[in-house]
Simulated assay, not measured.
Amino acid sequence: MNTELKNAVLATDLKAQYDACAKKLLGYKDILARILIEAVEEFRGISPEEVKSLIEDDIQIGKVPVDSGITNVIVGVDEDGKEIIGMNTVNEELNAGYILFDIIFYVRLQDGHSKIIINVEAQRKEPTEYDILNRAIFYVSREISSQKNREFVNSNYNDIKKVYSIWICMNMPEDSMNHIHLINDTIIGNQIWKGREDLVNIVMVGLAKEISAKEEKYELHRLLGTLLSETLKEEEKLDILKNEYHIPMKKSIKEDVKIMCNLSEGIEERGIIKGKAELLKQQVQKKLAKGKSIEVIADELEEEVADIKVLIDELEAK
């Protein structure tokens, strides 16, 4: 495998590990609680500790398929012999071809009975191959449609649970937050149609490249920016999480922050290596155009003759 391709493969692998680590960090209840307080109306003004206690333990990270027909699975039968349907989880090693929710979980309301289904998605940058809001609409629609036979049966549509799909998009031009939901526009008459207009909710959270200032309105953005930063050092991240957000510094979260920082350094290092390799290739190409021999080029660039031969072979193969 040539040097450039090898570096690209290694960088891709590092980014995949980084993304997995980011999802794991976002999946901690202490972090999810603060996301819910800012993004979900029902939890505004409630303490992080109380919201944390309302989050159910079965938080699925990168395991539940989005695809139609496979989000649910039969998990057993009840005492009357009826099938019990739950969320389908797939083996992470065997999920090729599946689109998976990054994070999906249930959170109870303060009444202790009602629940909301929450999906959190993390994006390192806004995609260019499709409009991200269209994907969010697809995900939130699946959160609704997959409740059939799991949350409600037959025509009991009043049992549908409210859903949120919260998208955290990094490397955006500015900090932002938008709530996209159903609006009832009256066109003719004054008919009041029964039903809930608040069932479907999308929240788009944009994180600027630079970490937000320490201001109340940017509280969530600063937390997420710190957590997902590719430039902050481990000590800086832990200091902000502990002293500004009072997040308990458990051994597991410390280890995951350390892993993420190491992966960030690896991605940066691979980028530098790739950049240096590209510059070296350009220099070799210019010297070849001047008719210089491999030995002279190697001497002038202070590189091994064998390495220059590899680069020339790569240039000629293009």
Rank of each mutant, 00 (worst) to 15 (best):
I211W: 10
L263W: 05
E41C: 07
K23D: 03
M172L: 13
M204P: 05
E56G: 05
G275H: 02
V153L: 00
W167C: 09
V200Y: 06
L227D: 11
M1S: 15
R44N: 06
N158W: 08
L36N: 06
G69M: 07
P248A: 02
D239T: 12
L301N: 02
M204Q: 14
C261R: 06
K194Y: 06
V40P: 07
K29E: 10
G69H: 07
I160C: 02
I294Q: 07
E300H: 02
A317M: 11
K242N: 05
R150K: 09
D57F: 01
F43M: 07
F152T: 03
V40A: 15
I137Q: 10
C21D: 01
E83M: 14
E295Y: 06
E143F: 04
Q285M: 09
L238F: 01
E151H: 03
N171I: 05
D256Y: 00
T186S: 07
L36V: 08
S212Y: 02
A96N: 13
D131H: 13
S252L: 02
V40W: 03
E129H: 13
D256C: 00
G86D: 08
K23P: 04
E303P: 00
K162P: 04
P65R: 12
M204L: 12
H181I: 01
N134L: 14
G97R: 03
S53K: 12
I188A: 10
N91M: 06
T12H: 10
I99E: 09
W167H: 14
R124D: 10
D80C: 06
R135W: 08
E235T: 14
L109T: 02
D185K: 14
E79T: 15
M1I: 11
D67H: 07
C261V: 15
R196C: 00
L207D: 13
A39P: 04
A208Y: 04
A306T: 13
K194L: 12
F138Y: 14
K6G: 01
R44P: 00
D30C: 03
A136N: 13
S176F: 14
Y245T: 06
S47G: 10
T186E: 09
E50A: 03
V66G: 02
A317R: 14
H221V: 03
L36K: 01
A8C: 05
Y157D: 07
A122W: 05
L25C: 09
T71W: 04
E302H: 15
